[in-house]
Design a protein around this nucleic acid. Structure first.
Lengths: 339, 339
DNA sequence: CTGTTAGCGCTTTCAA
DNA sequence: TTGAAAGCGCTAACAG
């Protein structure tokens, strides 16, 4: 038994099996039909004996195929992202790829940094679930011609596969549910839309849907996620302005819904009785919060799974034109909108 | 301008800068003081010009230093793990390491698979936040002598750095809080303890603490996380058995607290009024669930951060004896235990 | 200060 | 069927 700490290399195996590296390599790469049974057995034994595992580094260097996929994620703390991640992860496992995970913490320069990093590790493809992307980053990326798919976000002028929610349809469904429940004033609240297409699309659909219904007052407000007092103001204001009417809030994403719920608590409004509340993204605690919070659940896992399979199909040479995969959301009605 | 898709290599840069690879390598590795200003400038220009980024694969192969750290995580869906991850991530970024993230989905064979994988990518260290580990895995790991730290879990007979909560102290604090609040019957509920030392330690501390207080009935129960009906039974049973007394539940971890809260809803008990409830691990929604749920918050971020720094210090040659870092929890009192 | 050379562990012609 | 040898992109002696 070998007591060295260093790992066995292919040469060690070859030596132990009394053969050349080539045969070992063949053995490893499924070209076993080319090997005699005897040789095969020797190699197998040597590998087991030495506890040999080929170096992916060397392999990657040689073949250019690292079997690595880069994932850029805006905020690992966000349950939405985590669900996506979970689907990506499953697909990776299935397909024999490994994830290089990068959390940008919502910072643009981190995003850039990680993009570089991923390239330097020669990832074969990239999945991005991030905030935005500056021009320099885009150029580099486009020029690198690395297979890439964007989740939940399109970037204007950047042709690239995308997977996301059918925002128009989902928003319409959510809004109509509220109208049907008899809410007369609806506030759509989101983080500052900026160039984030998801927020824009949802807002637009909200406006369009409400505009088709007489007598429904539609409002919208934007606030940074962590500006509690601004959110308080918005909600208080909305509530007092429509005194005497049935009011509801739509929150554009899960993290925001949490903040909105906290804010409602602070300003002393109860969802369900004082005001309606519906949030995009399912929350594990939605049913436990008071009378429950209605949500629009995205099939996050499937989206992640789909995204990864999409990159892989590109990696494997799929040259078809840009693909946009959209998924339908599911409205989950709870006490906050069924009063 | 070069239109090839292939990335520039160090040779390309050397050629463009009219020099040898060595100088470029020196430039890249901070030995710039050895280079003349002129040469430095030429190299710098060439690098920019070619948008050159060194291949970590080749580097890793050559130096054996991949700057990669493997992370094995039991369940990426668990908010506790995610917080830890977040701290780990921050430390990585600071120290210039990259994470290879592996989610085992609580499956033991996945754990093994990933352990192999990480080695084959020549990670320089491993952080494990996982369920358990079978013997084969342990042996391989021990023999590979790869720096490793375990989070929130000790493995009997496996000498390795550990970071975790001061379970005894935290449990004592939580239990005494309940006693002080006048609860007369306390149920400690956890997932089946098995060999998981964390669960054991908490349960032991619970028993010890309650045994020191006259007139407090201490119970404990174990249920798999996803066996809803069993949890229902346990709670119903506990509640009816101590009819007329003030009762409280301690849940041994955050995921379980969620299930317990759901169960209480189902069986029609309200935390705060009908029964006390306190859970290990802070929950973002704790304050929103009815009167709020008291929690014992772990400094998860710091724990992750600490763990990573510990591996790095080992990577950098720290040969000191096994280190065990324990952190104190913080009791956050909300309505569920202050009735 | 600078460049040449020999590998790191692997795959892949190319010959036997 | 098998193996020797070249070389992926990089670093690290070793010479100038």
């Amino acid at each position: 038994m070998n007591t060295r700490v260093a790992r066995a290399t292919i040469s060690d195996v070859a030596k132990a099996a009394k053969t050349g590296k080539t045969s070992v390599s063949r053995y490893l790469n499924g070209e076993q039909h080319l090997l005699s049974d005897d040789l095969k057995a020797r190699i197998e034994f040597a590998i087991k004996q030495l506890d040999y595992r080929p170096s992916q580094m060397a392999r990657g260097l040689k073949r250019g195929r690292t079997r690595l996929i880069g994932l850029i994620i805006a905020d690992i703390t966000n349950p939405y992202s985590v669900d996506i991640l979970s689907g990506i992860e499953a697909a990776c496992r299935e397909k024999g790829f490994t994830l290089l995970m990068c959390n940008t913490n919502n910072e643009l320069d981190q995003e850039q940094h990680y993009l570089d990093l991923l390239q330097s590790y020669q990832v074969e493809g990239i999945v991005v679930n991030a905030v935005g992307m500056n021009e320099e980053g885009l150029n580099r990326l486009q020029q690198s011609a690395l297979p890439m798919v964007l989740i939940d976000r399109k970037i204007p002028g950047f042709a690239c596969d995308v997977v996301g929610l059918n925002n128009a349809k989902a928003t319409k469904e959510a809004t109509e549910h509220l109208i049907q429940q008899g809410f007369e004033a609806i506030l759509f609240i989101s983080e500052p839309t900026g160039t984030v297409n998801t927020r824009r699309e949802r807002l637009d659909a909200f406006r369009q849907t409400t505009s088709q219904h007489q007598g429904v007052a539609a409002e919208n407000a934007q606030a940074p996620l962590h500006d509690a007092s601004q959110i308080d103001d918005i909600l208080r204001n909305f509530h007092s302005r429509y005194r005497g009417m049935r009011k509801a809030i739509i929150s554009a994403n899960g993290s925001l819904t949490l903040q909105v719920a906290r804010s409602l608590r602070r300003v002393g409004l109860n969802w369900g009785s004082d005001i309606g509340l519906l949030g995009f993204d399912e929350l594990e605690w939605a049913e436990l919060a008071g009378v429950g919070i209605s949500t629009l659940k995205q099939p996050t896992w499937d989206m992640g799974y789909c995204a990864l399979n999409q990159v892989i199909s590109r990696i494997e040479g799929d040259k078809s034109s840009i693909k946009e995969s959209t998924f339908d959301g599911v409205l989950i009605i709870r006490g906050s909108t069924s009063c």
